[in-house]
Design a protein around this nucleic acid. Structure first.
Lengths: 158, 158
DNA sequence: ATAATTCCCATGTTATCCCATAAAAATCCA
DNA sequence: TGGATTTTTATGGGATAACATGGGAATTAT
């Protein structure tokens, strides 16, 4: 598997270390990125994290604006300027900076959440609320999509 | 055969393991996916499961939305964030996570239900109810279709 | 020097590997 | 054809490895 999927809650130890879930670790290894690239999520109290695939996405985002465009600089500052590459210890653990922890409201435990090409790190309770909300929205949207195209997916209406 | 068809009920052992039906296993092997990709079904108390074909379906759903759109993120959390790739042991068994089991109400046995490109995992009794109800709906629909067009296939499964 | 960080090893728990067995299905063969 | 033999399946259980986590010692920064 070359994608980040599923979610799990892990605890920080007394030194502030937390294990990256083994399945995420293996994706990162395959991705070939040394360390963990991360930054505060733009519109959520969470940390965005990943490897080369995430970097590529950001590059693409920035490349949409011509060089020296004001927006381009703003994206660069916001994304590159606030990002950091955490190093991973021999046991697959990282320590989040104060910056990242306070942005996400993290204290003693975190939820790792796979999003395909990247993953997010949340304060567990906030994540549960976020997930419930997102799931509700998706249910509504798929129902609507389902009624538009009868033949395609078998999302099993009843 | 490269599709998941028919259904069968199997029991979980003391360690929570359950064999994937042999016919499904051979489809998965042909599909080439290592492990079993699955997630809680959006609008049913069941688990959706499969391999690359199912992943492709999810990708398609997400690709409908432009990058960085709010809806896209919501789909990613709901689908990637809640899905997991279970690994299959040498005997063709998987263990469902607590998350998946509680979503489907599974305790000590499951019904595997082929749906073509994917299959579902149900609590056996719930599945029987669901099947009865779905069959009734299909009968009505085929009757209506039958009166429109002379050549119909028979809707009499079960 | 002192605090913080990183490296290295220890440990409990959980999952997974490997082999065994019983039932069912497929195959063989007189 | 029909009964015996082999093969495939489902399931059980003990041994083993992986994982998350904790803590001391070494290293680096302040």
């Amino acid at each position: 598997m070359d994608r980040f999927v599923s979610n799990s809650v892990l605890r920080l130890d007394a030194k502030g270390r937390v294990s990256i879930p083994a399945s995420f670790r293996s994706v990162l290894t395959r991705d070939g990125f040394a360390g963990l690239f991360c930054y505060p999520a733009l519109d959520q109290p969470a940390v965005d994290a990943g490897g080369h695939a995430l970097l590529a996405e950001i590059e693409g985002l920035i490349a949409r604006f011509p060089p020296y465009a004001v927006e381009r600089e703003e994206f660069q500052v916001t994304l590159y300027g606030r990002s950091e590459t955490l190093n991973v210890d021999g046991e697959g653990r990282v320590v989040l900076s104060e910056e990242l922890k306070s942005h996400a409201g993290i204290t003693d435990a975190v939820a790792f959440v796979g999003l395909g090409h990247k993953f997010q790190i949340w304060e567990p309770q906030r994540f549960r609320a976020h997930l419930a909300q997102a799931t509700a929205t998706v249910r509504k949207l798929t129902k609507r999509l389902g009624s538009e195209r009868p033949a395609s997916d078998d999302g099993a209406r009843e």
